[in-house]
Simulated scan of single mutants.
Amino acid sequence: MALFSKNMEQATAAASKAADVVAEWEAKAAAARAEAARLDAESGAAILEDESAAERITLNVQTWERKARAYDQAAEEARRKHVSAYREALEVEAREEDKQAAAAGKTAAALTAKVAALVGQLKELENVDFAAVPVYVGSTGKNYALPNSEILQATTRRHEVRAALIRYYIQTGTLTNDVHDLNQLLGTALKDNAISIGGEGIEIPGSLLAARDAGLSFVGA
């Protein structure tokens, strides 16, 4: 998972606050509509008891209905702000993934260069070639530990793919588990060998799963 910066925390907090505002206005609209329905349902008995109350009750019902419509409009505006805030949070998250990918890639390159230099020294000392062999772990002798450089390279790919997934979702409103889709839309050059997305492969960012489940789309926003 990416280590979120303060900017990421702020963007996430803004999106969460915007979602709370939407929920607040929706609750007010629902309550106003319920009150209007209650008054209307009880109006018959009240009017039979006092016919002069008809106009007052009608105005009261209309007032609550008008309030509900006003709250609906406020909720719609809040939804637009929520979408905007959530998209900004995703864009920040993608940049964080870029930073993590760059950091892991830089470390991997430095390690590879250091190992190559050491192997060169050994070859010069012994006048023979040296090659890496797997270190087996466990009792079966079939599993082996990955070299640190490969672990760092895999970390780099994971962050690169997660950043691409976020940008893909922003542009399409959909998720994909195909690296070719990412490359085609975004113009990236992600290698698809040994890459699986979702399941036990590269994890899809939780922010995207939440956006999908909430029906959030940023296409045209």
Rank of each mutant, 00 (worst) to 15 (best):
M1Q: 09
A2N: 08
N7C: 02
M8H: 12
Q10F: 04
Q10G: 00
A13W: 02
A14L: 12
A14H: 10
S16Y: 03
K17R: 06
K17C: 00
D20C: 02
E26G: 02
K28W: 04
A36P: 01
A37W: 04
A37Q: 09
A37Y: 06
R38H: 04
D40H: 10
A41I: 05
A41C: 06
A41W: 01
S43Y: 05
S43M: 09
A45I: 07
A45R: 09
E49T: 07
D50K: 12
E51Q: 05
S52K: 11
A53C: 09
A53F: 06
A54K: 09
I57G: 01
T58K: 14
L59Y: 05
L59G: 15
N60S: 13
T63W: 00
T63R: 12
R66Q: 15
K67E: 02
R69S: 14
R69D: 13
A70W: 01
D72E: 15
Q73L: 07
A74M: 14
E76I: 09
E77K: 15
A78C: 03
K81H: 13
H82Y: 11
V83E: 10
A85K: 06
A85C: 07
R87L: 01
E88S: 11
V92T: 11
E93C: 10
A94C: 12
A101I: 07
A104K: 10
K106Y: 09
K106S: 11
A109E: 12
T112I: 07
T112M: 06
T112D: 12
A113I: 00
A113F: 00
K114Q: 12
V115Q: 08
A117H: 11
A117P: 02
L122P: 07
E124K: 13
E124H: 04
L125Q: 10
E126S: 15
N127V: 05
N127L: 04
V128G: 04
D129N: 14
F130K: 02
F130Q: 08
A132H: 14
V133K: 15
P134K: 12
V135M: 11
V137F: 02
T140Q: 14
G141Q: 09
K142E: 13
Y144S: 14
Y144R: 08
P147L: 12
N148S: 11
I151W: 00
I151Q: 04
L152Q: 01
Q153L: 06
T155I: 03
R157N: 04
R158E: 15
H159W: 01
L165G: 01
I166M: 09
R167A: 03
Y168K: 01
Y169M: 06
Y169K: 02
Q171E: 15
G173W: 05
L175K: 04
T176M: 02
N177E: 10
V179K: 00
L182W: 02
Q184K: 14
L186P: 01
T188E: 13
N193E: 15
A194E: 13
S196E: 11
S196D: 10
I197N: 04
I197R: 05
E203K: 11
S207P: 03
L208M: 02
L209R: 13
G215L: 08
G215R: 03
G215A: 09
S217P: 08
S217M: 08
